[in-house]
Simulated scan of single mutants.
Amino acid sequence: MDSVISKFLNIPTTCISDVMDGLNNMHPAIKPLKEEYKFAGRALTVKIPVGDNLAVLKAIREAKAGDVIVIDAKGDQYRAIAGDFVIGMAQTLGVSAIVVDGVIRDVVGIKNLDFPVFCRGTAVAASGKAGIGEINVPISCGGTSVNPGDIIVGDADGVVVIPQAEEQSIMEKSLEKLKKDEIREMKVSRNVEAIKEYLDNMLLNK
């Protein structure tokens, strides 16, 4: 894991989102199967039509260790892009997470893998394998543009996309904001007078 990604792994998505003015967040319906899931990695993008997951298998085969497979499944919630068998293969090959604007199935089995999957929910029906789809192309996932190599960060609050060209600047600004938030928390939390002063200052500046 490179140093930039390891640093993003320790920054909440809410903090990163604030630095980017909330413009690079995926749709809030895309959530982790377990709240404790947290990941950061580079995007290996997948574009598929509704109901065809062969390109997902291709992405798993070509993924490098640490990659995040990000799938544009058009928000379809009827046919699952994968079940526990396919997700298990991705985990074994070193993929760090799967994010899909769509659904998965075999939810109990996938939870037992303890592997970060972020999706819109679960379904019963499987996808077909006609072979239509592309990998490593620009996509839209959860209403947000994702390019191959962008850094993707996910936690209990959702998923954010950090454009590759801006990753260093966004990382530095996110770390700075995190530090300020921590100082504010130590100063204000459980201190009645400090809380009143903080609220008064906020209200006066509006």
Rank of each mutant, 00 (worst) to 15 (best):
V160I: 13
G142S: 08
I170K: 07
E193N: 10
I195R: 03
G133I: 11
I110R: 00
I135H: 09
K187Y: 12
E197N: 14
A123F: 05
N136H: 05
G109C: 00
L93A: 09
M186T: 11
G143D: 11
I183W: 07
R184T: 15
S96Y: 05
I170E: 03
V95W: 03
I135S: 04
N112T: 02
C141L: 07
G102N: 05
V161A: 06
I151H: 02
G142K: 08
I162E: 03
A194T: 10
E176Q: 12
R120N: 11
K177P: 01
D155S: 12
I195A: 14
I132F: 15
V137L: 10
G128I: 11
D155K: 05
I104E: 07
Q168Y: 03
G143I: 07
K129P: 00
D157R: 05
V103N: 05
A90H: 02
D84C: 10
I110K: 01
E166P: 00
N136Q: 12
A126M: 08
I104Q: 07
T92F: 05
M186Q: 14
E185S: 12
I195W: 04
I87K: 01
A126Q: 11
Q91L: 12
M186V: 13
K179D: 13
S140G: 06
S140A: 11
C141V: 15
G128Q: 08
V100D: 10
I110Q: 01
K111E: 10
V107K: 00
F118M: 12
S174P: 09
E197L: 11
E182Y: 09
I195H: 05
N136A: 13
S127R: 05
G109R: 01
K173T: 04
D150M: 03
L93P: 01
V159K: 04
N191I: 10
G149Y: 05
Q164D: 11
R105P: 04
S96Q: 06
R184Y: 14
S169P: 00
